[in-house]
């Protein structure tokens, strides 16, 4: 039997996976093991599959994903820290037929940008918010975030988050799900193929809601890891996330078609 060469294998009929053309070839700035890359890719795959690459405007945050516009091959604006929903509000209202989304981390969305987040949700802006919650400030070097778990050590809570003096982890997703302006809320993860597939379905539903002009905002939280900030290997960080983050931030749909899911 003749030996198989690489050239024999890389044929279109053998293709099982291809990088979406809505991701650029630029090397991701994220740490190896970080969930951002997968979250970016899923978002871009969804936009490609929905045929909206020429009609989408994305808003990048400040944080690890500040450079999202380098990787997402669509028109993008980069907002000041926390202000992405304000950008998105105006873009969508002035271009109602376009698809508009923000991509934000926990510090951006749930600390400095809390007002913009809550009010965009409360006005029922017809945008999608992709919210990456890794419980830490990654880009600035691992400081405490609003979503940092109790007793969790960070560079600004070196002895662990003392909730009595530092406050409790903010479940902003549950908070905004109670607002009538919000159409769809789902909390997902991207640390395993199964989780990523579910997350992609949720992201797709969020964008589909906007395309279908369903009233209100669609909000996807992705609970993710930060192996660098958590000072763990990628695998350990994923295990730690399952054991510690998921109980506090349980995965699944929270609100569908404007109705809260009964637990």
């Amino acid at each position: 039997m003749a030996e198989l060469s690489v050239q024999d294998i890389i044929k279109p009929e053998n293709l099982v996976y291809e990088k979406t053309k809505l991701m650029t070839d630029k090397t991701l700035s994220y740490c190896p093991g970080c969930g951002h890359g997968t979250a970016h890719r899923l978002t871009m795959e969804v936009i490609e599959e929905l045929g909206k690459e020429n009609d989408t405007i994305g808003i990048a945050p400040v944080g690890c994903s500040v450079l999202a516009y380098e990787f997402m091959n669509i028109d993008m604006q980069q907002a000041a820290h926390g202000r992405a929903p304000a950008h998105a509000t105006a873009v969508k209202r002035l271009w109602p037929n376009k698809v508009v989304f923000t991509y934000q981390g926990d510090g951006d969305l749930a600390a400095i940008g809390t007002a913009e987040t809550i009010h965009a949700c409360n006005r029922g802006e017809q945008i999608v918010i992709i919210f990456i919650n890794n419980g830490i400030y990654g880009m600035t070097g691992g400081q405490m975030a609003p979503t940092t778990l109790p007793e969790m050590k960070t560079s600004t809570s070196p002895f662990g988050r003392d909730v009595a003096s530092m406050g409790y982890p903010l479940k902003i997703t549950e908070l905004i799900s109670n607002l009538p302006g919000v159409q769809y809320v789902s909390r997902q993860a991207v640390h395993s193929p199964a989780a990523a597939r579910k997350a992609k379905r949720a992201i797709k539903k969020a964008f589909q809601n906007q395309i279908d002009n369903k009233p209100g905002l669609s909000f996807i939280e992705i609970v993710s890891n930060c192996n660098s900030g958590w000072k763990m290997t990628p695998n350990d960080s994923n295990e730690w996330m399952e054991e510690n983050m998921f109980p506090y931030y349980p995965l699944g749909d929270i609100k569908v078609d404007g109705k809260l899911i009964e637990k």
Binding site: I57, I59, Q77, A79, A80, R83, A86, H87, A88, T89, A90, V91, R93, L94, W95, A115, E116, H119
Partner: peptide, 19 residues
């Protein structure tokens, strides 16, 4: 649109003017 703050309204200008 009546924004929630001047911080929001100026960033709405970025969104709108930017598009």
């Amino acid at each position: 649109l009546q924004a929630e703050s001047e911080v929001a309204s100026i960033n709405m200008l970025y969104g709108g003017g930017g598009s």
